[in-house]
């Protein structure tokens, strides 16, 4: 009798767990099936491809590490890696500073706060093709308003007017554009972070006679540490993935990037869809992945550190 009850109990517990699992899986399934098929499978494939030589039609050949060895000697790959890193190093701090500044201002009780918050987000929601075409016009080397201002107001001679979309300036242009486009977005993240700092801290600070700068330095900044950290990681990852901004600002009519503006994703695309060197393209993609992974690992480290604080 006793053993029968426990048996039945065990069985019903088992049945209950099974039911629980199935209910949970039914929740996950619609998303997970799509996710597994369209994301997990290709990712696995991408890893394999980096060690193969394949053009999409002819028989696949295993080449081991050859693709990676070729990368080291590839001038275009090195240029694209370099450009991607320079671009990220320029964009991340500038965006951080401007978006944090904006967030702090817009966290105050000022008139039209909602309006300004909305406005800051405009460049991010606007279509890239549209805003880049404005930028190419505004910074047009001989007709654009920016150079017109330099010419008329600052008397910069005609032949010294900058060509914003070539040479070293092109990366500066990409950085400026990205800061403009993304600062509103990260501002919102900082705004959210600011909400988590308890008001009492500021009140206590004011009572203790701390001035605005001191309150910022000793209350706001430490309070925002986790947010700043997360934002910089997200930003860095997004910067590594730059493609369409570069093509649209620097690609010209042929949508091609030269050595001075080539970025990793462009090189991945070119090798895959123009040269059909799929294995090689995947090897470049793996370099991108390692870059992102490094940043993510740093984030995990940092996060656990901040979580403990």
């Amino acid at each position: 009798m006793a053993s029968g009850t426990s048996d039945r109990l065990a069985r019903s517990r088992k049945r209950r767990t099974l039911k629980k699992n199935l209910v949970a899986y039914s929740f996950i399934a619609p998303n997970f099936i799509g996710f597994a098929v369209f994301t997990l499978v290709p990712i696995t494939f991408a890893f394999l491809l980096a060690f193969l030589e394949w053009d999409g039609n002819n028989p696949i050949k295993f080449v081991g590490l050859e693709n990676f060895q070729a990368l080291v000697k590839d001038k275009f790959f090195i240029a694209s890696l370099k450009n991607t890193i320079i671009y990220s190093v320029g964009t991340v701090p500038l965006t951080l500073v401007t978006s944090l500044g904006l967030a702090i201002i817009l966290n105050k009780e000022i008139k039209g706060r909602a309006f300004f918050r909305t406005l800051g987000f405009f460049p991010y929601v606007a279509s890239l093709v549209a805003v880049t075409s404005v930028w190419t016009m505004v910074f047009h080397s001989s007709k654009g308003p920016v150079n017109a201002i330099l010419y008329y107001l600052f008397n910069v001679p005609k032949e010294k007017l900058p060509n914003w979309f070539t040479g070293n300036l092109v990366l500066v242009m990409l950085i400026l554009f990205s800061v403009w486009r993304f600062m509103g977005y990260y501002m919102v993240m900082f705004l959210a972070g600011l909400q988590t700092i308890p008001r009492e801290l500021y009140e206590a600070g004011t009572i203790d006679g701390a001035n605005a700068w001191q309150r910022f330095r000793y209350i706001t900044l430490p309070g925002l540490k986790p947010t700043t950290f997360l934002v910089s990681v997200m930003l860095t990852i997004n910067c590594f993935k730059i493609y369409d901004i570069a093509v649209m600002l620097a690609g010209g009519s042929t949508n091609t990037l030269s050595v001075s503006s080539m970025v990793l994703v462009y090189y991945i695309y070119q090798n895959a869809f123009n040269f059909w060197k799929l294995g090689y393209s995947s090897a470049v993609a793996m370099v991108l992945f390692v870059l992102v992974l490094t940043v993510t690992l740093i984030q995990f480290r940092g996060q656990s550190k901040y979580a403990n604080e």
Binding site: G167, G252, T256, S258, V259, F275
Partner: peptide, 19 residues
């Protein structure tokens, strides 16, 4: 030829824009 083409393109762009 498509790679040669790409190489000539990229340096053409750089020569023409004075880089």
């Amino acid at each position: 030829v498509s790679e040669i083409n790409a190489i000539l393109d990229t340096y053409h762009k750089m020569i023409m824009s004075g880089e």
